[in-house]
Simulated scan of single mutants.
Amino acid sequence: MTSNGSTANGALVKDAAPQDEKPIVELRGAGKSYGNIRALHGVTLSVQPGRVTCVLGDNGAGKSTLIKIISGLHQHTEGEFLVDGEPVRFSTPREALDKGIATVYQDLAVVPLMPVWRNFFLGSEMTSGPWPVRRLDIARMKKTADEELRAMGIVLDDLEQPIGTLSGGQRQSVAIARAVYFGARVLILDEPTAALGVKQSGVVLKYIAAARDRGLGVIFITHNPHHAYMVGDYFSVLRLGTMELSADRSQVSLEELTNHMAGGAELAALKHELAEVRGVDVEELPEEQDLKAPVVTSEGTAS
C-alpha cells in the first residue's frame, strides 16, 4: 500500500512499493552552502542498482551542486551522504570513482581529433612490455573497446575515426560504455540530451536503458520531463535548491511531472493576471488548487 506525504520543506513525496535492492548512493537531508548562499537544502535521494533516478529542474534549481556533491568535486555542508550504507565525505572525484561513481558531463572530456579507441582509454591506457620501456598495447585496446561498445549495442564501422566525427548521440554512448567498462556502479549523466535533436536523443536514451539493464544505478540529470519519463524509474524535481517532488514512476504521470517541472503552481497563481492581458486565453490553464500537493490524514490517506 502506498501513501502520499510532504516533507518538512514542503516537497511532495509519494512512497512506492519497497525495493529489495539496497541503495548504492543515498543522500539524507543533504545540502550545500557557499558562505551565506545556500545552494542546496534538505535533499533526500536514493540510487539503487538497475534503476534510473531522474533529477529534473530548471536553471539554478541546484542540479549542478547535487552532481558536484555525489561526484566528489564538492563536499556537503549539511545532512548525510552514504555509499553502500556507510557515511562518506569525498575530497576528490578520484575517491568517488574508486567507489564506482562515474560522471559523464556534457563536454564528455574527449579529444575530438583522437580516434574512438584512444578516447575510450584516455588517461587509463593499456601497456605491454617491461618497465621502463613499456609501450601502448594498441591492438588490445582496439579489441577491448570494440567488444565493450558492442556489449552495449554500439556498433561503429571504424574505431580509427576521430571521435569528433561521430554524432552527439554516438559520442554520449561511447562515454557511457567507457564508464561501464571502468567499473562504474553509479553513472551520473549531466544533461546528455540537452544539445541533441530528437533522433540523437533517442540514441542516448536507448543506452541509458542499456546501462540500467546491466545493473547500474543511473542518475539522469535533465530539464526535459518527456525524456525523463521515457526511461526513468524514479523522479525528483528540484526547485531553488530544495526537493519539490520525489515520486516513483507508478505514482506520478507525465502530466504531473511536467507541471512540477514547469512550475505549474506558480503559473496557475498568475492566471488572474494573465486574464487581464488582451488576447490571452486562460480558460485552459490549470487552476491553482489542481496542482497542490494532497494532504495526508492521520489514517495515511490523501485528501
Results as ranks from 00 to 15, higher is better:
residue 112 P to A: 06
residue 142 K to R: 13
residue 236 S to W: 02
residue 281 D to I: 01
residue 271 K to H: 02
residue 94 R to E: 15
residue 134 R to E: 08
residue 21 E to L: 07
residue 42 G to Y: 00
residue 185 R to T: 03
residue 131 W to Y: 09
residue 241 G to Y: 09
residue 285 L to N: 08
residue 235 F to D: 02
residue 17 A to I: 07
residue 109 A to P: 00
residue 17 A to D: 09
residue 179 A to N: 07
residue 270 L to H: 13
residue 5 G to E: 14
residue 5 G to D: 13
residue 155 V to D: 15
residue 150 R to P: 11
residue 157 D to M: 05
residue 103 T to E: 03
residue 255 E to C: 00
residue 166 L to K: 14
residue 253 S to E: 04
residue 220 F to W: 10
residue 233 D to H: 12
residue 31 G to F: 10
residue 102 A to C: 09
residue 4 N to V: 10
residue 35 G to N: 11
residue 109 A to M: 10
residue 38 R to T: 15
residue 199 K to D: 13
residue 176 I to T: 14
residue 116 V to W: 07
residue 26 E to D: 00
residue 167 S to Y: 11
residue 62 G to T: 04
residue 13 V to R: 14
residue 72 G to C: 03
residue 142 K to T: 00
residue 146 D to T: 14
residue 64 S to D: 08
residue 64 S to L: 09
residue 228 A to N: 14
residue 81 F to R: 07
residue 75 Q to D: 02
residue 15 D to C: 02
residue 181 Y to L: 10
residue 302 A to Y: 06
residue 296 V to M: 14
residue 36 N to I: 00
residue 188 I to F: 10
residue 234 Y to A: 03
residue 83 V to D: 09
residue 3 S to H: 14
residue 181 Y to D: 12
residue 282 V to H: 06
residue 149 L to H: 14
residue 9 N to K: 01
residue 61 A to L: 06
residue 283 E to Q: 11
residue 138 I to E: 12
residue 279 G to L: 10
